[in-house]
Amino acid sequence: MEAQKVDMFIMSNNKFFESHHIPQIRELLLKADDSKWALVQTLQFQDPTTILIVSLLAGGFGVDRFMIGDTGLGVGKLLTCGGFGVWAIVDWFIIMGATKDKNINKLQQVLY
């Protein structure tokens, strides 16, 4: 892919990824074929801040986990009322990182 396109993508989407993943994403996109560009553009990433707010408000029902695609963990959290409150608290600190990990996995699935 062209460097200009890649830089544009990174500028507009950097908040969806961990800062230390950015160089790796840049490398991946530069190596990728031009035909992947349309696919990459259509990808919908989850905003970590939004997920954190959801986790703070409805974490006890597992909504945050459902939103990032962890259905199994979401059901577990829902049935245990957020792990009796403990899991819900721990997720306040984990969920942003987990969301960013999901986003990079989504990108990697398209590129490979």
Partner: peptide
């Protein structure tokens, strides 16, 4: 996180341990 767990689960000692273990 362990500090916040202390505040939430103050009467029950296992809450803090569980929270730090999950983390």
């Amino acid at each position: 996180m362990s500090l916040i767990a202390i505040m939430v689960g103050l009467p029950f000692p296992i809450i803090n341990l569980l929270a730090t273990f999950i983390f």
